[in-house]
Amino acid sequence: MNPSHPTTENRIGSAISIEQHISGPHWEPPTIPNATTYWRCTSCHRESTREQDLHRERFHAPDCEVWP
Rank of each mutant, 00 (worst) to 15 (best):
M1C: 11
M1I: 13
M1S: 12
M1V: 14
P3V: 14
P3T: 12
S4C: 12
T7K: 08
E9A: 15
E9W: 05
E9I: 09
N10P: 08
N10D: 15
R11Y: 09
R11G: 07
I12A: 09
I12V: 10
A15P: 00
I16Y: 08
I16K: 07
S17W: 05
S17K: 11
I18M: 13
I18G: 04
E19C: 13
H21P: 02
I22K: 00
I22P: 00
S23T: 06
P25C: 07
P25S: 07
P25H: 04
H26A: 03
W27K: 03
E28F: 03
P29I: 07
P30M: 03
T31G: 00
T31M: 04
I32Y: 00
I32L: 04
P33K: 07
P33F: 07
P33D: 09
P33L: 10
N34C: 08
N34W: 02
A35M: 00
T36K: 09
T37D: 06
Y38R: 07
W39V: 01
C44P: 01
H45E: 15
H45C: 11
R46K: 15
R50L: 10
E51G: 06
E51F: 02
Q52P: 03
H55Y: 15
H55I: 06
R56A: 13
E57D: 09
E57H: 13
F59K: 10
F59Y: 06
F59Q: 08
F59E: 07
H60E: 03
P62D: 10
P62L: 09
P62F: 04
D63H: 14
D63Y: 12
D63Q: 13
D63V: 14
C64E: 05
C64I: 11
C64T: 04
E65I: 05
V66F: 01
V66H: 00
